[in-house]
Write a protein that binds this DNA or RNA. Structure first.
Length: 457
RNA sequence: GGCGCGAUAGCAAAGCGGUUAUGCACCGGAUUGCAAAUCCGUUCAGCCCGGUUCGACUCCGGGUCGCGCCUCCA
């Protein structure tokens, strides 16, 4: 039985789908005005795993991950870059897709863009107005009246009065309550706008997710995910909008992943301490990055540093090494096998990927001992559920993230041939010299009865 | 100020009221021309103070420290 930590209940709960055999999941994706950083990579990987495990558990999954392609930052950046908003967002959507593909992220079933859902947003705002939860302020903005929605704060555990006490935002006098949030912003100069019953304008940040999720998944669905920083106010506001408009429960299970940190601080744009995915991929294999993320539980903080990635690379190499010398059977998971049972137990416990990885290492040790093609196949199959060990071991072990040329690989092969000849002549000094030279270049040689192989250090 | 999360061995990171987590690093042995890889073995834990218990890293209470949200943020 799968258990999920539900942010709404603040405890692990049995996952019971609304419709038996089916899971509908919505995840807040990217705002496309810049490159994705490692924090974004974590969301992508974490919910890719959720999606994969739900499917592996036999559920029919509909996975929606949205793209925010209209908001303040995009408008600002487009102006700075002197390009259109469409150009800017297209540009970064392309980069995002490249990064996601590199990380082994399976494409979601739907990837809706906010700009394509303006009519649905307007319908929703109209419904909220009809329900007495939205009002148009003097400045033309349409706001949500948080005091009118009884459950406001239930996700984040905040009470409106506490929020008011801690209010640090400049009060917008046009709002009925400082905590009211905007559903529809009136048109301003140099900004794109859409016509609406409330005049020309553009959507507020939160309304898009309410509109897209109900359109693609229905008014009530199973799982909603995103980074921990979205819990408040974004997800709280989504609940207010969706439940306020539809009059029914919005989402059963809320999932929030922890932050990536740098030197014990949250990695974020505003702190300027972020590393983009493509920056990291210049130094580390994408699968190493994926493994690095999966080695920590999704709700724990994850500290980023080169030495941690070095460590992850060494660890992943151990798994690939186990597959290198055994001809793994290409078989599906044998679910009755003991490692698979442990793996399943781990994943069913709120997606405990660190424990699932530990099972992979135990299994790898078993493969090394037994040289069993069936067990090697099992290792490959289980790891595959996490999107790991999907490549040829030799390709992984010899891969280099930077732009190494074929020529240098040819050079390695040539030097190995020289060394084999030297060894044949019992000229061990020459053999060791060649090995030392290659080692200095980060190439490790491994002699075995079957001959000499090499890998990157 | 309000709300929440965390503190595990040299580093990273899980489960668990009593029995080896796991990975990296380290040490000893096997193996090897020597290595590497692999195998076998050893060493190294649970912030502090109380409480519950036959027994607590694990449960409860109180500290201390760290982090996050309350403002755009994955």
């Amino acid at each position: 039985m799968l258990k999920i930590y539900n942010s709404l209940a603040r405890e692990k709960q049995d996952f019971v789908p609304i419709n038996p055999g089916e899971a509908r999941m919505y995840v807040c994706g990217m705002t496309v005005y810049d490159y994705c950083h490692l924090g974004h990579a974590r969301v992508l990987v974490v919910f890719d795993i959720v999606q994969r495990w739900l499917r592996a558990s036999g559920l029919r999954v509909t996975y929606v991950r949205n793209i925010t392609d209209i908001d303040d930052k995009i408008i600002k950046r487009a102006l700075e870059n002197k390009q259109s908003i469409a150009e800017l967002s297209e540009h970064f959507i392309t980069f995002m897709n490249e990064d996601a593909a590199a990380l082994g992220i399976e494409p979601p079933d739907h990837e809706p863009r906010a700009t394509a859902y303006v009519p649905q947003m307007l319908d929703l705002i109209g419904q909220l107005e009809k329900n007495g939860l939205a009002y148009q302020a003097k400045d033309g903005d349409v706001n949500f009246a948080v005091r009118k929605f009884a459950g406001y704060g239930k996700l984040s555990g905040k009470s409106l009065d506490d929020l008011r006490a801690g209010e640090r935002v400049e009060v917008d006098s046009a709002k009925g309550d400082p905590l009211d949030f905007v559903l529809w912003k009136h048109a301003r100069e140099n900004e794109p706008f859409w016509p609406s019953p409330w005049g020309n304008g553009r959507p507020g940040w939160h309304i898009e997710c309410s509109a897209m999720s109900s359109d693609l998944l229905g008014k009530h669905f199973d799982i909603h995910g995103g980074g921990q920083d979205l819990q408040f106010p974004h997800h709280e506001n989504e609940i207010a909008q969706s439940e306020g408009a539809h009059g029914c429960q919005f989402v059963n299970y809320w999932m929030h992943n922890g932050f990536v940190r740098v030197a014990e601080e949250k990695m974020s744009k505003s702190l300027g301490n972020f590393f983009t995915i493509r920056e990291i991929l210049k130094k580390y294999d994408a699968e190493v990055v994926r493994f690095f993320i999966l080695r920590a539980h999704y709700r724990s903080p994850l500290n980023y540093s080169d030495s941690h990635l070095d460590d992850a690379r060494q660890a992943l190499s151990r798994l690939y090494t186990a597959l290198k010398s055994v001809d793994a059977e290409a078989s599906p998971v044998d679910w009755e096998e003991p490692h698979a049972l442990r793996f399943t137990q781990a994943m069913n416990d709120d997606f405990n990927t660190p424990e699932a990885c530990a099972v992979l290492f135990d299994l790898a040790a078993e493969v090394n001992r037994s040289r069993s093609p069936a067990l090697a196949g099992q290792l490959r199959a289980l790891a595959g559920l996490l999107g790991l060990l999907t490549r040829d071991p030799q390709v992984f072990l010899q891969a280099t993230p930077s732009s190494e040329t074929e020529a240098s690989i040819a050079h390695v092969e040539a030097r190995i041939a020289e060394r084999v000849a030297a060894k044949k002549n019992k000229d061990y000094a020459a053999a060791d010299r060649i090995r030392g030279e290659l080692l200095a270049a980060g190439i490790v040689l491994e002699d075995s009865a079957a001959g000499t192989t090499w890998r990157r250090q």
